[in-house]
């Protein structure tokens, strides 16, 4: 029997086969969408560039060369030119990819579990627990995210770690809402009632049955949110409240190039292009994942 036939068997004989078969079917659907594949390629590219940054960089990201300051792109071995301190912009972008990836990954790790936990508990327990948790969620949703993140950074002090914390604090409410809505549709299903009758504890039902079923919606939303998180982190960097110099964070690099925008446009333009490409990648990937993972859209 060929591998494809095994994967697509109508009646899978083990849990593993069923899971792999489902994954394969999803992948076939996903890979037929060229935009989603482009998004995947961009995100994979970001990971590769971040991993191989020292190999790809032609110069040190922080080494200054005042003799070669504000070199235009292509000249003297600087593919994308140099900034006001003579630092190679390509090398800084490549190293900045690590910061972008770290911000995205850290926020995801901090935010998704909190949103899932709050949403699933609120949706499963209902009653006053639900009312209280959803009120708290509403309060956080009532602020525009960037403004709330700004206020938190003001309190914690500028810096990339605090920026991540501020973004995380302002990012969890939408996940809680989604997880809650999903949980409420699952809560009254027969299989949950069956599990409860067999004596399963609330924790076991939540962890074993509810969370896995809400996970795909949350994953889709997280992927779509990544672009927004990158933009907010870059915005904080641009305002001087995120990553601090000489860190090659893309938003901070744009802020550094702002003074020279009229004559040496490339200093501010290049990091902006990098931000656009990466956020576009996450958006396309998220759209593609939604088509595959969200059965309601099909």
């Amino acid at each position: 029997m060929s591998l494809t036939a095994w994967l697509l068997e109508e009646a899978p004989r083990s849990r593993l086969q069923a899971r792999l078969g489902q994954g394969y079917a999803g992948w076939r659907l996903f890979s037929r969408n060229p935009l989603a594949m482009a998004g995947l390629a961009i995100v994979a590219g970001l990971v590769l560039v971040a991993a191989a940054a020292p190999l790809l960089a032609t110069h040190s990201p922080v080494a200054q060369d005042l003799a070669a300051r504000l070199t235009p792109p292509g000249a003297a071995g600087h593919w994308l030119g140099t900034d006001d301190l003579g630092r190679d912009i390509w090398s800084r972008l490549v190293h900045g990819a690590r910061i972008t990836l770290a911000v995205v990954a850290l926020t995801m790790v901090l935010v998704a579990p909190v949103g899932l936990a709050v949403g699933c508990v609120a949706g499963y327990r209902g009653g006053w627990v639900d009312a209280v948790l959803m009120r708290v969620t509403d309060v956080f949703l009532a602020f525009p995210r960037l403004i709330l993140a700004l206020a938190f950074v003001a309190a914690l002090g500028p810096g990339i770690e605090n920026a991540v914390i501020a973004i995380a604090v302002t990012s969890w409410p939408p996940y809680a809402r989604i997880a809650r809505a999903e949980t409420m549709t699952i809560r009254n299903s027969d299989f949950i009632a069956a599990a409860r009758l067999q004596g399963a504890s609330a924790a076991r039902i939540l962890w074993g049955h509810v969370v896995p079923l809400t996970l795909s919606s949350v994953i889709v939303r997280v992927t779509l949110d990544m672009a927004g998180i990158i933009l907010i982190a870059a915005g904080l960097g641009f305002l001087g409240l995120g990553a601090q110099p000489p860190s090659p964070e893309w938003g901070a690099m744009i802020a550094g190039g702002r003074k020279y925008i009229l004559d040496q446009w490339w200093v501010a333009a290049m990091p902006g292009v990098a931000i656009c490409v990466v956020s576009l990648g996450f958006n396309l990937l998220g759209d593609g994942l939604r088509d595959v993972l969200d059965p309601k859209q099909r």
Partner: peptide
């Protein structure tokens, strides 16, 4: 609209 940083578009 979901991918471009607003401050960068302003500078450009």
């Amino acid at each position: 609209g979901y991918s471009i940083p607003v401050f960068w578009l302003g500078l450009m």
